[in-house]
């Protein structure tokens, strides 16, 4: 996907939350994300993932004030010069707690909220609501109260509300952290389909490394406000020692390869499988060799 054009560019971004903070929340961030990328943001709590994501639609530094240095260009727009509500048409945001994002009396009104602000016609709204509910799999719930939905449904409603403004980029900040296992699966599925079928750029901060290794084509690892690693899942998860020192987990299939290597059973030279399909192939060959 690297042939497609860059859609998000961070150029030497440093950000301090308060005037008196000594440690910046983001340190010299340089990152280029291309159209259609699925980006996994990994890192412990407090690593700067949320702050980085809030830079993409300009909430940082336009709404959350602080010392901002550098430049963020999103779809050709400088976030410093573009109001957040303008950015809403380019960037959809989904946050970790679904309940904290909902405010309306019905699912339909919740999705319509942004469109009302932008002056969409009634017919457009009805059409869009049906369309986005279809995408997230909540058909027929238009009249239900958002607060009567399950956590997974609420989070998918948040996604639908963001999609209503037809953004090119979907930014999700730990969208599954308050959701049960079935709900998690539903959310990952929706994000995956948006990325593959609609070529939407997805940036997801998540702790589920297996899922991220499965879907993402770019993995960005953050630590104390800095990007310490970025690359394909295969590249990033070959840095076993560094990830361990940062307190991060590897996908279990990769950890398995690492253990086999330590025991001298197999030599992978850091090329650990990160997806289940790769693991079946790699370890399958090993078992065949042993059996043969």
């Amino acid at each position: 996907m690297s042939e497609s054009k860059p859609i998000i560019e961070f150029k030497d971004v440093t950000f301090w939350y308060g005037q008196n903070e000594t440690e910046p929340a983001l340190k010299n961030i340089n990152l280029t994300i291309h159209e259609g990328d699925y980006v996994a943001l990994l890192g412990l709590n407090g690593a700067g993932k949320t702050t980085l994501q809030l830079c993409i639609n300009g909430v940082v530094p336009n709404n959350i004030l602080g010392n901002f240095e550098g430049q963020v260009i999103v779809d050709g727009k400088d976030t410093l010069e573009t109001p957040v509500r303008e950015m809403a048409k380019i960037v959809g945001m989904v946050f970790d707690n679904p309940e904290f994002q909902l405010s309306q009396m019905s699912v339909g009104e919740e999705i319509a909220l942004g469109m009302e602000s932008l002056g969409y016609s009634y017919e457009e709204m009805v059409e869009t609501i049906d369309e986005v509910l279809d995408i997230v799999g909540l058909q027929g719930l238009t009249e239900r109260s958002p607060f009567g939905l399950s956590g997974g449904q609420q989070q998918r409603l948040s996604i639908a509300s963001a999609l209503a403004m037809r953004p090119k980029i979907l930014v999700m900040d730990e969208p599954t952290s308050n959701v049960d296992p079935i709900g998690k699966e539903e959310i990952f599925q929706v994000a995956y389909e948006l990325n593959r079928k609609r070529n939407m750029t997805v940036i997801m901060a998540e702790h589920e490394v297996e899922v991220m290794a499965q879907y993402a084509n770019l993995v960005v690892v953050m630590h104390e406000g800095e990007i310490v690693l970025q690359g394909t899942p295969e590249e990033v998860f070959s840095n076993v020692d560094l990830l361990k020192s940062l307190g991060l987990r590897m996908p279990q299939v990769a950890a398995f390869g690492n253990e086999l290597e330590k025991l001298g059973i197999m030599t992978l030279n850091g090329h650990y499988p990160v997806k289940l399909s790769q693991a079946v192939e790699t370890y399958g060959r090993l078992f065949e060799k042993k059996a043969g």
Partner: peptide, 20 residues
Amino acid sequence: QLSISLESRAFGSSGHKTSY
């Protein structure tokens, strides 16, 4: 949280508003 989320959804835009 809600105010950040609302702002991210174009709430508070100036100009003509419609009603669903």
